[in-house]
Protein backbone atom coordinates (compact mmCIF):
# COMPACT_ATOMS: atom_id res chain seq x y z
CA UNK A 1 0.00 0.00 0.00
CA UNK A 2 1.35 3.46 -0.88
CA UNK A 3 2.62 5.27 2.21
CA UNK A 4 0.40 8.31 1.68
CA UNK A 5 -2.69 6.18 2.40
CA UNK A 6 -1.48 5.11 5.83
CA UNK A 7 -3.27 7.75 7.98
CA UNK A 8 -6.64 6.92 6.47
CA UNK A 9 -5.92 3.19 6.62
CA UNK A 10 -5.45 3.55 10.36
CA UNK A 11 -8.57 5.55 11.21
CA UNK A 12 -11.16 4.49 8.59
CA UNK A 13 -12.17 0.88 9.20
CA UNK A 14 -14.76 0.72 6.41
CA UNK A 15 -12.25 1.96 3.84
CA UNK A 16 -9.68 -0.49 5.15
CA UNK A 17 -12.13 -3.34 4.63
CA UNK A 18 -12.94 -2.05 1.15
CA UNK A 19 -9.27 -1.96 0.18
CA UNK A 20 -8.82 -5.47 1.47
CA UNK A 21 -11.88 -6.73 -0.42
CA UNK A 22 -10.68 -5.23 -3.71
CA UNK A 23 -6.93 -5.79 -3.56
CA UNK A 24 -6.24 -8.26 -0.74
CA UNK A 25 -4.41 -11.28 -2.13
CA UNK A 26 -4.80 -14.61 -0.37
CA UNK A 27 -1.62 -16.53 0.40
CA UNK A 28 -1.19 -19.65 2.50
CA UNK A 29 1.42 -20.20 5.16
CA UNK A 30 2.42 -23.00 7.51
CA UNK A 31 0.39 -21.34 10.22
CA UNK A 32 -2.59 -20.70 7.91
CA UNK A 33 -2.57 -23.60 5.41
CA UNK A 34 -5.03 -24.16 2.61
CA UNK A 35 -7.89 -26.29 3.82
CA UNK A 36 -10.36 -28.49 2.03
CA UNK A 37 -13.82 -29.60 3.09
CA UNK A 38 -15.39 -32.85 1.92
CA UNK A 39 -19.16 -32.89 1.61
CA UNK A 40 -21.02 -35.83 0.13
CA UNK A 41 -17.82 -37.14 -1.42
CA UNK A 42 -17.01 -33.82 -3.14
CA UNK A 43 -13.96 -31.81 -2.14
CA UNK A 44 -14.29 -28.04 -1.79
CA UNK A 45 -11.37 -25.65 -1.41
CA UNK A 46 -11.53 -23.26 1.48
CA UNK A 47 -10.85 -20.06 -0.39
CA UNK A 48 -12.20 -16.58 -0.85
CA UNK A 49 -13.55 -16.07 -4.36
CA UNK A 50 -10.95 -14.60 -6.73
CA UNK A 51 -8.70 -13.58 -3.88
CA UNK A 52 -5.69 -15.58 -5.09
CA UNK A 53 -5.67 -13.77 -8.42
CA UNK A 54 -5.81 -10.25 -6.95
CA UNK A 55 -2.68 -8.15 -7.08
CA UNK A 56 -2.27 -7.53 -3.38
CA UNK A 57 -1.18 -4.00 -4.28
CA UNK A 58 -3.22 -0.83 -3.76
CA UNK A 59 -2.58 1.51 -6.72
CA UNK A 60 -1.42 5.07 -6.05
CA UNK A 61 -4.42 6.50 -7.91
CA UNK A 62 -6.98 4.60 -5.85
CA UNK A 63 -10.27 6.47 -6.14
CA UNK A 64 -11.39 8.65 -3.22
CA UNK A 65 -8.29 7.88 -1.18
CA UNK A 66 -8.15 11.47 0.04
CA UNK A 67 -11.87 12.03 0.28
CA UNK A 68 -13.36 14.69 2.54
CA UNK A 69 -16.18 12.23 3.19
CA UNK A 70 -14.71 9.13 4.85
CA UNK A 71 -16.35 6.28 6.79
CA UNK A 72 -18.81 5.32 4.05
CA UNK A 73 -21.19 2.83 5.73
CA UNK A 74 -20.49 -0.77 4.84
CA UNK A 75 -23.76 -1.38 2.96
CA UNK A 76 -23.13 1.48 0.52
CA UNK A 77 -20.65 2.05 -2.29
CA UNK A 78 -19.57 5.48 -3.39
CA UNK A 79 -20.26 6.25 -7.06
CA UNK A 80 -19.05 9.84 -7.08
CA UNK A 81 -18.49 12.82 -4.85
CA UNK A 82 -17.84 16.54 -5.08
CA UNK A 83 -17.90 19.44 -2.63
CA UNK A 84 -21.71 19.51 -2.61
CA UNK A 85 -22.88 15.89 -2.62
CA UNK A 86 -21.95 12.23 -2.44
CA UNK A 87 -23.70 9.75 -4.72
CA UNK A 88 -24.09 6.26 -3.33
CA UNK A 89 -25.28 2.90 -4.54
CA UNK A 90 -26.50 0.03 -2.37
CA UNK A 91 -28.32 -3.27 -2.45
CA UNK A 92 -31.60 -4.06 -0.76
CA UNK A 93 -32.02 -7.48 0.76
CA UNK A 94 -35.26 -8.10 -1.12
CA UNK A 95 -33.62 -9.25 -4.36
CA UNK A 96 -34.25 -5.95 -6.13
CA UNK A 97 -31.41 -4.55 -8.21
CA UNK A 98 -30.59 -2.04 -5.48
CA UNK A 99 -30.86 1.70 -5.46
CA UNK A 100 -29.31 5.16 -5.61
CA UNK A 101 -29.06 7.68 -2.82
CA UNK A 102 -27.42 11.11 -2.98
CA UNK A 103 -26.33 12.65 0.30
CA UNK A 104 -25.68 16.41 0.54
CA UNK A 105 -22.17 17.13 1.87
CA UNK A 106 -23.59 18.94 4.91
CA UNK A 107 -25.44 15.78 5.95
CA UNK A 108 -22.55 13.35 5.50
CA UNK A 109 -21.42 13.33 9.14
CA UNK A 110 -24.90 12.47 10.32
CA UNK A 111 -25.33 9.90 7.57
CA UNK A 112 -22.28 7.94 8.70
CA UNK A 113 -22.87 8.22 12.45
CA UNK A 114 -26.64 8.05 12.95
CA UNK A 115 -27.74 4.59 11.85
CA UNK A 116 -31.43 5.07 12.72
CA UNK A 117 -31.66 8.33 10.77
CA UNK A 118 -29.76 6.77 7.87
CA UNK A 119 -32.35 3.97 7.67
CA UNK A 120 -35.15 6.53 7.74
CA UNK A 121 -33.55 8.46 4.89
CA UNK A 122 -33.09 5.26 2.91
CA UNK A 123 -36.77 4.36 3.18
CA UNK A 124 -37.91 7.90 2.47
CA UNK A 125 -35.72 8.88 -0.49
CA UNK A 126 -33.75 5.99 -2.01
CA UNK A 127 -34.60 5.37 -5.65
CA UNK A 128 -34.77 1.86 -7.08
CA UNK A 129 -32.40 1.01 -9.92
CA UNK A 130 -35.33 -0.71 -11.65
CA UNK A 131 -36.91 2.71 -12.23
CA UNK A 132 -34.22 3.33 -14.86
CA UNK A 133 -35.45 0.56 -17.14
CA UNK A 134 -38.79 -0.90 -16.03
CA UNK A 135 -42.25 0.46 -16.77
CA UNK A 136 -44.21 2.21 -14.01
CA UNK A 137 -46.74 -0.63 -14.11
CA UNK A 138 -44.05 -3.20 -13.38
CA UNK A 139 -42.68 -1.10 -10.52
CA UNK A 140 -46.11 -0.65 -8.95
CA UNK A 141 -46.85 -4.36 -9.23
CA UNK A 142 -43.63 -5.43 -7.60
CA UNK A 143 -42.72 -2.65 -5.18
CA UNK A 144 -45.78 -0.42 -4.76
CA UNK A 145 -46.67 2.98 -6.18
CA UNK A 146 -44.80 5.12 -3.68
CA UNK A 147 -41.44 3.90 -5.06
CA UNK A 148 -42.19 5.79 -8.29
CA UNK A 149 -41.97 9.15 -6.56
CA UNK A 150 -38.78 8.75 -4.57
CA UNK A 151 -36.14 11.16 -5.83
CA UNK A 152 -32.98 9.35 -4.74
CA UNK A 153 -31.76 12.56 -3.10
CA UNK A 154 -31.83 13.48 0.57
CA UNK A 155 -32.78 17.17 0.72
CA UNK A 156 -30.63 19.49 2.83
CA UNK A 157 -33.77 20.38 4.77
CA UNK A 158 -33.47 17.00 6.53
CA UNK A 159 -30.56 18.46 8.51
Amino acid sequence: MPAQFWPRFVFDEEWRNELFAIYGKTVYTEKYPKKTVTLGGRVFNDKVQDSESRTGIVPEDFKYAFTKFPDCPRDYSKHSENDKEIKLGFYYLDLSDGGHLTVPAVLWDRFVTDKKWRSEMLLKYARLVELDYKSPEEIIKRFGEKELYKTGIIPESEY
Partner: peptide, 30 residues
Protein backbone atom coordinates in the same frame (compact mmCIF):
# COMPACT_ATOMS: atom_id res chain seq x y z
CA UNK B 1 12.06 2.54 14.73
CA UNK B 2 8.76 2.03 12.93
CA UNK B 3 7.76 4.79 10.52
CA UNK B 4 4.08 3.89 10.46
CA UNK B 5 2.32 4.03 13.80
CA UNK B 6 -1.14 2.87 14.78
CA UNK B 7 -1.28 -0.31 12.71
CA UNK B 8 -4.76 -1.88 13.14
CA UNK B 9 -4.53 -4.96 15.34
CA UNK B 10 -5.73 -7.38 12.67
CA UNK B 11 -2.75 -6.46 10.47
CA UNK B 12 0.95 -7.12 10.79
CA UNK B 13 3.57 -4.94 9.08
CA UNK B 14 5.85 -7.21 7.01
CA UNK B 15 8.00 -4.57 5.36
CA UNK B 16 8.07 -0.80 5.27
CA UNK B 17 9.92 1.79 3.22
CA UNK B 18 9.42 5.53 2.87
CA UNK B 19 7.15 4.84 -0.14
CA UNK B 20 5.05 1.86 0.87
CA UNK B 21 3.98 -0.61 3.54
CA UNK B 22 3.56 -4.35 3.05
CA UNK B 23 0.93 -5.85 5.34
CA UNK B 24 -0.37 -9.26 6.30
CA UNK B 25 -3.82 -9.99 7.70
CA UNK B 26 -4.45 -13.45 9.07
CA UNK B 27 -7.64 -15.19 8.06
CA UNK B 28 -10.22 -15.07 10.83
CA UNK B 29 -10.52 -18.33 12.80
CA UNK B 30 -13.26 -20.70 11.60
Amino acid sequence: MKKYRGCPEEYEVLKETHLSIELFRAAPPK
